[in-house]
Design a binder for these strands. Structure first.
Length: 896
RNA sequence: GCGGGGGUCGCCUAGCCUGGUCAAUGGCGCAGGGCUUAGGACCCUGUGGGGUAGUCCCUUCGUGGGUUCAAAUCCCACCCCCCGCACCA
């Protein structure tokens, strides 16, 4: 990336202030008695790369808010840890070892050298440490106000393992940990669940439970048909098998089943006991009859290519009236000279009434989509989808089946399952909702994991408690609150362990590792502890359960903990006090993608571990994603920009901060555009110049009424800024504190007729407020101008002063000037006269302020003469008799 | 399918909850003008159409209806876009 000379001076300023902050340790926050605290956090990032624009938006919002709270006088704690739990780091290593070009390129983009990459291949810890160092460095360069004494990493740290272990023991005590079965999408080659990110194909596909209906041969051997639509059993005309597939006879849970060979391993993975007895030639099944339960009739088995042996059992029931696939296969069979005999006298059966369709919706769909053959897979899929959805939602069972007559299809489905179960003719099987291919190119199927461990988020008491608390919490923006409630509503048991990846061993079953989302719910409390681990070299072994009980819960006597851990009593007490001081978390901010899991778990777990609401989270702020020039960020588009390059080469920290943070608010996605940087930069440059002049004592003017008007405007800006920033609406806030204040300063100087005629005190005040209000977004630059004006560092050291209320009357004076200017402009345009202007003021007050902008008017519009009269002045020049039209705040105008 | 968020004057965006002060905020872009010093990045003006010595009229806020003296804002229907749906950071 090219280094820009233009912004070099800003970068210099930034390095300077970063150094001063660090030397003064201003962001190292400890308890201060009687000073209100604010504990703010950003979810720790996963460290398999360096920070880029995507991370930047959320985290800079959090940093800006931390700085804002400091400005209001809070003792702000903003710590930052890092996350290494889970699979991706191992995945990176594996790909590097395989020589994956894209992975190598990504690592290099972020600044890893060939040497580093060689070490990555061998040393996981090095990968983690390398990227953590990089993160810390980059965040410092971007001006983050973080207390770095408290940083830590998960998964590879024994201290943290202890913490997680303790937490899980607590959860288990409270009965929030359960064990059970769970279907997952499984790669038979990798022997592990295949998550969305590990898929070559099939992102978003999930396990779906199918019904198996047990049709039977004479000898009661089962012909198990798999279906999502058991209710259509009443419209069965025949069954299908694939004549070219491999089928077997097998013993399944003690019964004899005929199924496709492909189905065997799935059934096994779904906890069925399966023994294959022998192969079965599918052709030998053709024409054989099977008995259909419930409707108690025999139907023939027929061959068709529509059957996929690798889907379900490879045995399908045929409902030509309501399933497009079946309909087309049915027609083809009827036309087949060899096979048609089996369907003699058999026609599609109409069983569901569907408005807007004939008796046979499947037939309608076939015609609508112009399907000519059973090989037109894509069209058949669409047709099936259409019919399935419509029938499910609005279809009603017809009267020809007594036990279902009049039922909605969705109800009939449940009813049929029940009835089949009574007859022991029902079973279930899981399939993927669509084809899923693992990264290793193996096709995946559904496996039911046994002895899986869960966090029981479905626990009703827990849910109710969470919801009750969420009513009291603050959410930014408010709209997101609903999503949190919905999330709690649909949360079920969540699998909290995995067999692979980095992480903490599950304390009750060491074969399992606690998965990443589950080890990250209450770690904000760990920031308190980490400071002491770093400072006093506390060993992992000393961090016993009693230790955590005491420090975090205030349980147990300190003497007892001293004897168990060997730690100093004073240190323990200090930790406990510090926890008491800083907890709860006052604000947690992140992207909206985390709402449905992490942020909700964060609430759940705090309520589970701490009994007192005193320690429960107070507020959550959520924001959108980041686009670059209107496009989604992605590796393939090559628009992932490392933060460091933007900050140290292309622009500067402040420019990046203000440009990204103000680019969107609420739930909107941010859009990074290079060209917008300039609208900030040009104004900063000018403020800098003005500040220099003020520092050099250039302004010599008196304070006049205009000064009041301008300061009154500042008050308005201040109040708006405060309100918007408080709610993390940085865009709206900056519109006031940055753009509007800038133009106010600009206007002030214009009215005064140049900077030397401005009043120094007013100008200084305007710039100081500019510095304070914008310091959350552009901390370095504002620090610079703040100190240029002779103020002591730092800009946030002294709380910002409330400016008092806006004066309505003064406001009207301002409006009067604005209106006057626009009226004059209009009149000049219309009359084409701009030699002389005569203004007739309503009263002395109006007259006075008009006199103040007299020169400004002459300069701006090029008048040779500007006369201002009181409206009652009988000697006034007034050829058009305008002066009687003057109103309060609305002088009359005459042009020549 | 379930759930959430949206569609505003070239682009991005404010307004909508609490109807009128809304031809509708700010930025970007574009056009015109200014500058003996805040100086190449600044300032001002314009940016739906029309009219007039100033606060006027017409047509606009996804589409189609409705409520109302009055709707970008409230109600109904429809169309379209984005996001999440879990063992994954």
């Amino acid at each position: 990336m090219e280094e820009s000379k233009e912004y070099a001076w800003l970068r210099e300023i930034e390095r300077k202030w970063q150094k001063k902050w660090e030397e003064a340790k201003v962001f190292e926050t400890d308890p201060v008695e009687n000073k209100p605290k604010f504990f703010i956090t950003f979810p720790y990032p996963y460290v398999n790369g360096a920070p880029h624009l995507g991370h930047t938006f959320s985290s800079m919002r959090v940093d800006s808010y931390a700085r804002f709270k400091r400005l209001l006088g809070f003792n702000v704690l903003f710590p930052q840890g890092f996350h290494a739990t889970g699979e991706p780091i191992l995945g990176v290593q594996e790909r590097l070892n395989k020589g994956d070009e894209i992975q190598i390129k990504t690592m290099k983009l972020y600044g890893a050298t060939d040497e580093d990459i060689e070490r990555f291949k061998k040393d996981v810890k090095y990968i983690v440490e390398f990227w953590i160092n990089r993160w810390i460095n980059d965040l410092k360069l971007a001006g983050f106000s973080i207390d770095w004494r408290r940083t830590f990493v998960t998964a590879i740290d024994d201290h943290y393992h202890r913490f997680v272990t303790w937490q899980y023991k607590k959860l288990k005590e409270k009965d929030y940990i359960k064990q059970g079965r769970h279907p997952v999408i499984w790669c038979p080659h990798c022997q592990s669940p295949t998550g969305d990110h590990d898929r070559l194909k099939g992102e978003g596909e999930t396990p779906v439970e199918f019904s198996i209906i047990k049709f039977r041969f004479n000898d009661s051997t089962v012909f198990p048909v798999a279906t999502l639509r058991p209710e259509t059993i009443v419209g069965v005309t025949n069954a299908w098998i694939n004549p070219n597939g491999k089928y077997v006879l097998a013993e399944v849970d003690g019964e004899k089943w005929v199924v496709s060979e492909d189905a065997i391993k799935k059934l096994e993975d779904q906890l069925k006991i399966v023994h294959v007895i022998k192969e079965v030639d599918p052709k030998s099944l053709i024409g054989k009859k099977v008995h259909v339960p419930l409707i108690e009739k025999d139907v023939p088995i027929l061959p068709s290519e529509i059957v996929d042996t690798d889907f379900g059992t490879g045995c399908v029931m045929s409902v030509p009236g309501h399933a497009p696939y079946d309909y087309i296969a049915f027609i083809e069979t009827k036309k087949d000279p060899e096979l048609s005999k089996y369907l003699e006298g058999i026609e599609p059966i109409s069983i569901i009434k569907l408005d807007g369709y004939s008796d046979l919706p499947a037939k309608d769909a076939i015609e609508k989509y112009g399907i000519k053959s059973s090989s037109e897979d894509e069209k058949l899929e669409d047709a099936t989808n259409e019919i399935y959805k419509k029938e499910f939602h609005v279809g009603v069972m017809k009267d020809n089946v007594l036990f279902l007559a009049g039922l909605k299809v969705s109800d009939a489905k449940e009813k049929v399952k029940e009835l089949l179960q009574e007859k022991k003719a029902h079973d279930t099987m899981w399939e993927t909702s669509g084809v899923v291919i693992c990264r290793c190119t193996t096709k995946c199927h559904v496996k039911i994991l046994e002895n899986q461990w869960f966090i029981d988020y479905s626990n009703l008491e827990w849910k109710a408690k969470v919801k009750k608390w969420m009513k009291k919490m603050k959410f930014y923006p408010e709209e997101i609150r609903k999503l949190f409630f919905d999330t709690v509503d649909w949360l079920k048991e969540k699998a909290c362990t995995r067999k692979t990846g980095l992480g903490t061993r599950f304390p009750f079953d060491k074969e399992w590792i606690i998965e990443p989302l589950s080890d990250s719910t209450i770690y904000m409390s760990y920031y308190i502890i980490q400071k002491y681990i770093a400072k006093h070299g506390i060993k992992a072994e000393q961090m016993t359960d009693e230790f955590f009980d005491y420090v975090l819960l205030g349980k147990g006597g300190v003497k007892e903990v001293v004897s168990k851990t060997g730690l100093d009593e004073s240190i323990l007490k200090e930790m406990r006090n510090e926890f008491e001081y800083f907890y709860p978390v006052d604000l947690r901010g992140s992207g909206k993608d985390l709402v449905q899991h992490h942020l909700t778990f964060f609430i759940y777990h705090h309520l589970a571990i701490w009994d007192n609401e005193k320690y429960w989270p107070r507020a959550i702020a959520v924001n959108g994603f980041v686009n670059v020039a209107g496009e989604k960020m992605s590796k393939s588009k090559g628009n992932i920009i490392p933060l460091r390059d933007l900050v140290t080469k292309k622009f500067s920290a402040d420019l990046v901060r203000i440009n990204i943070v103000t680019s969107a608010e609420d739930l909107d996605d941010a859009d990074w555009r290079d060209e917008n940087v300039n609208s900030f930069y040009s104004r900063m440059l000018n403020i800098y110049q003005i500040t220099k002049k003020v520092a050099e004592d250039v302004p010599k003017g008196e304070k006049t009424k205009i000064d009041d008007v301008i300061v009154n405007r500042l008050k308005k800006i201040y109040h708006d800024w405060l309100e918007h920033t408080e709610a993390l609406r940085f865009r709206s806030a900056a519109q006031r504190s940055f753009f509007e204040l800038y133009s106010t300063i600009s206007r002030y100087i214009e009215y005064k007729g140049g900077i030397e005629n401005a009043n120094k005190e007013t100008l200084k005040m305007l710039i100081e407020y500019f510095a304070k209000m914008n310091s959350p977004l552009i901390p370095h630059f504002t620090e610079e101008i703040w100190s240029m004006l002779g103020n002591k560092p730092f800009v946030f050291s002294e709380p910002i002063k409330n400016l008092g209320n806006v004066d309505k009357k003064t406001m009207m004076l301002e409006k009067m000037i604005d209106d006057l200017l626009s009226d004059v402009r209009k009149l000049i345009d219309l009359s084409r006269k701009n030699t002389k202007i005569y203004l007739y003021a309503f009263d002395d007050e109006d007259k006075k302020i008009l006199e103040e902008i007299q020169k400004y008017l002459a300069r701006t519009f090029g008048f040779k003469e500007v006369k201002i009269y009181h409206k009652d002045n009988k000697n006034a020049i007034d050829p058009m008799n305008k002066r009687q039209k003057a109103k309060k705040f609305k002088p009359a105008i005459y042009l020549e």
